[in-house]
Amino acid sequence: MAGRPGEDARRRLVDAGIRLLERDGPEALNARRLAAEIGASTMAVYTHFGGMAGLHEAIMKEEFVRFGRHLHAVPRTDDPVADLLALGLAYRDFVLANPQRYRFMIGLTGPGAHPPIGHDLIGEGTPTTLPEVNAVFEQNVETVRRVMAAGRIRRDDPVPVAAQIWSMLHGYVLLETIGVFGRDGVPTVLAPAAVNLLVGLGDRPEAAEGSLRSLASAAEAPAPAPRPKVRPGRRPRA
């Protein structure tokens, strides 16, 4: 069922903004180019979003929703440390696949292009004023809680611990996007940094390295062959 005209126009502008982000970077997001992308006048931006600030916020929300879905798709296992490491790799994969979008999402843009959404994470418990962004961070916090409950790291406030992990990962992926680590950054920089951080938080070195190995083994395991479809009442041929 088609949406209302206003909703359709908003969606088209958001999708156009994401296309421009991917193609030309955050600096390309202006009313003239967005309107031209969908064959409308610049007034469409002001009619549906009240201006570029409103459109920027809508694009950011949409991208964080997509980011959250990407992380949520990571399987959860009975090893929460391996799950935490897997979330980190999924985070990295998203950034490398969408570097321009990530620049915009995280605020690495020109003046005025990023909505003022920052929050005092330590004081307030969430990194921004947008629930779509906070939901992504909460996946990290929830996994940290599982790691603590399993006795792998010290029981502490999970929010600052999740923030430590986020800070390490964010710094790494930004450097990787500009080619600092070449092809071997994950085994030589990211994985050791993650193990060192986990050990600093109270995990045993052999346990942290074991979780890392189990994650690597799972990634290298071949996918199971699909089962043959069997029609009801018939046996598969040998």
Rank of each mutant, 00 (worst) to 15 (best):
L13N: 06
G233C: 11
R11D: 12
P127C: 01
A53C: 03
L89G: 10
G112I: 04
D203L: 04
H114G: 05
G68P: 06
G50N: 10
T188R: 15
I18G: 02
M148F: 11
V186H: 10
G118L: 13
N196Y: 01
G185D: 05
G151F: 09
L29R: 08
D78C: 13
V159R: 10
F67V: 07
E176D: 13
T188I: 05
V65H: 04
A31R: 15
G125T: 01
L96R: 11
G68E: 07
D15S: 13
G107Y: 06
P158G: 09
A40S: 15
F94L: 12
T177N: 02
A221R: 15
E132D: 00
A163H: 15
T143S: 00
V199N: 01
A194Y: 03
L89R: 06
G151K: 02
I178C: 05
P228Y: 12
P222L: 03
L175N: 02
A2W: 10
D15K: 14
A44W: 05
A16Q: 14
D24P: 10
W166T: 07
E176N: 03
G25L: 03
I18W: 08
A149R: 13
H170G: 13
Y91C: 12
G17H: 09
R146V: 01
F181C: 08
V199F: 12
D15H: 13
M105G: 09
L197N: 00
L85C: 05
